[in-house]
Design a protein around this nucleic acid. Structure first.
Length: 456
RNA sequence: UCCCCAAUAGCUCAGUCGGUAGAGCGAGUGACUGUUAAUCACUAUGUCCCUGGUUCGAGCCCGGGUUGGGGAGCCA
């Protein structure tokens, strides 16, 4: 007999019917002549109630089936006579395919996220992490659908890179040289004949493809060797980076806004059950918050205007506010949470505090950069219009101490058929945090990599 | 990397004045029940993070370390 999924059984309307289902025991309530088993196969946040009557073969033995055991149940799916569920499965035969004894770490009670991180191999079997990883999967599909619907080309940019000037952070070295050579390595003898690292961004390669396919995006793993110990940083995370030719900063912001709101609509519509769970157990009012973002247009604020707001603020900041200084987390939070009260694009930053590839504005003081700030998470998108003028780009690289020879392939796109173009990077996990209410990035990644942690 | 806080039963925590450790939940056993993280009764469980010191005596005080959490920086 074909195995059924719990989520389909719970929606079934052809009752009664004989079926087979497999999953893991979440809880078991045993009495003398009847017992109830809550069964999950991960397809849904809801469990299927399996009814065991005293006449079931090996009834007393089966009543001792521990939480976490894997079982296959054959029986009759029927309407439930009791409250709490509309359908239930009257068991005729139960096979315990993998028993779990009382040392199973997940108990029939609430556990802290900190504890569950120490058993990351088992936590997907909990309600919260079931919801998190169903949401993650569905959201990843939504990302691809959004771009596919708009004609964007999906490009797989390299994970191993020889660019030492991507500028986004410290990099992990990739080498096959013996460890004892690591102190003073001769990279000409290394696997690639040069020093290589794991990518910190697919942007530069993405730009190359945008100069051929016009609208492209990447969606893949990204690595930063920063010793960051915060709830918002991981050494390995997934990033989405669209790039558009013949586009300026406002086109970029428009795409970012449409994209972000699309994802909000997606989870409210397609992940309603899990979102309801988050709303009830993780963050009260979550769905209402997401709904507001999905239906509202985002504020756009000049950096210069933000500085003016911050200088007029009645609260006192720990870090100084002055035109030309970068904004600190406390400043960004104040803008998005107090001044605007919603997602906010900050645009046109002083050129000194931004990357070399960002397009210089006509005022000669600012560059066409944008950050999307959202309440709770802070910076969730960083993007810019790119400098497409070869002479200006060369001058800026030299000013930043970057050797143009190492990026000839990048400069070639400005040499022949250059276009105004723009793009942004969005941290996939940060969107997940924003949409689920989960407050630690380690709790939205299956097996997170952070300083000192690469187990599992 | 910096600042702050914490570490005691499987989990979450309490532990008074420095005098050899407790609760709830979970687990086990039994009873009972169309039950909903069932209910009731009983039972068991400790490297008090490690290390050095002070003391007659340290879970508690002091030094060093480890791990975890929160915040900052870096950024997505």
């Amino acid at each position: 007999m074909k195995r059924n999924r719990v989520i389909d059984l719970l929606k079934s309307d052809a009752l009664p019917q004989s079926i087979k289902v497999s999953g893991w025991v979440r809880s078991l309530r045993a009495g003398k002549d009847v017992a109830f088993m809550a069964l999950s196969d991960g397809s849904s946040a809801a469990t299927l109630q399996v009814v065991m009557e005293g006449s079931l073969p090996a009834f007393e033995e089966l009543c001792k089936t521990g939480t976490g055991s894997a079982v296959t149940v054959c029986g009759v799916l029927r309407e439930s006579p009791a409250k709490g569920q509309s359908v239930e499965l009257l068991a005729e035969k139960i096979e315990v395919t993998g028993a779990a004894d009382d040392s199973y770490p997940l108990q029939k009670k609430r556990h802290s996220f900190e504890f569950l991180r120490t058993i990351a191999h088992l936590r997907p079997r909990t309600n919260t992490f079931g919801a998190v990883f169903r949401l993650r999967s569905s959201l990843a599909h939504a990302v691809h659908r959004f771009f596919e619907e708009r004609g964007f080309l999906y490009v797989h940019t390299p994970i191993i890179t020889a660019s030492d000037c991507e500028g986004a952070g410290e990099m992990f070295r990739v080498t096959t040289l013996p460890p004892q050579l690591a102190a003073a390595p001769d990279f000409s003898r290394d696997f690639f004949g040069r020093a290589t690292s794991l990518t910190v961004s697919g942007q530069l390669e993405g730009e190359l493809f945008a100069q051929a396919f016009t609208d492209i995006y990447t969606f893949g793993p990204t690595f930063r060797a920063e010793n960051s110990n915060t709830s918002r940083h991981a050494a390995e995370f997934w990033m989405i980076e669209p790039e558009m030719a013949f586009a300026d900063l406002m086109d970029d912001a428009a795409l970012a806004e449409e994209f972000f709101r699309y994802l909000c609509h997606h989870v409210l519509g397609k992940c309603a059950e899990d979102m309801a769970f988050f709303d009830e157990h993780v963050e009260k009012g979550l769905c209402e918050r997401i709904r507001k973002v999905a239906d509202s247009s985002f504020e756009v604020m000049e950096y210069t205007e933000a500085i003016r707001h911050l200088k007029q603020a009645t609260v006192s900041f720990q870090y100084p506010v002055s035109w030309g200084l970068d904004l600190q987390s406390e400043h960004e939070r104040y803008i998005t949470e107090k001044i605007v009260g919603g997602p906010t694009f900050l645009v046109n930053y002083p050129k000194e505090i931004k990357a070399f590839y960002m397009r210089q504005n006509d005022d000669n003081k600012t560059v066409a950069a944008m950050d999307l700030l959202v309440p709770k998470v802070g910076e969730i998108i960083g993007g810019s219009q790119r400098e497409e003028r070869l002479d200006i780009l060369l001058a800026k690289m030299c000013a930043c101490g970057i050797n143009p020879d190492s990026l000839q392939w990048y400069l070639d796109t400005r040499r022949w058929g250059s276009t105004p173009h723009a793009g942004f990077g969005l941290g996939f996990e940060r969107v997940l945090m924003y949409l689920s209410g989960m407050e630690n990035i380690r709790d939205v990644i299956p097996f997170p990599r952070t300083p000192g942690h690469a187990e599992f």
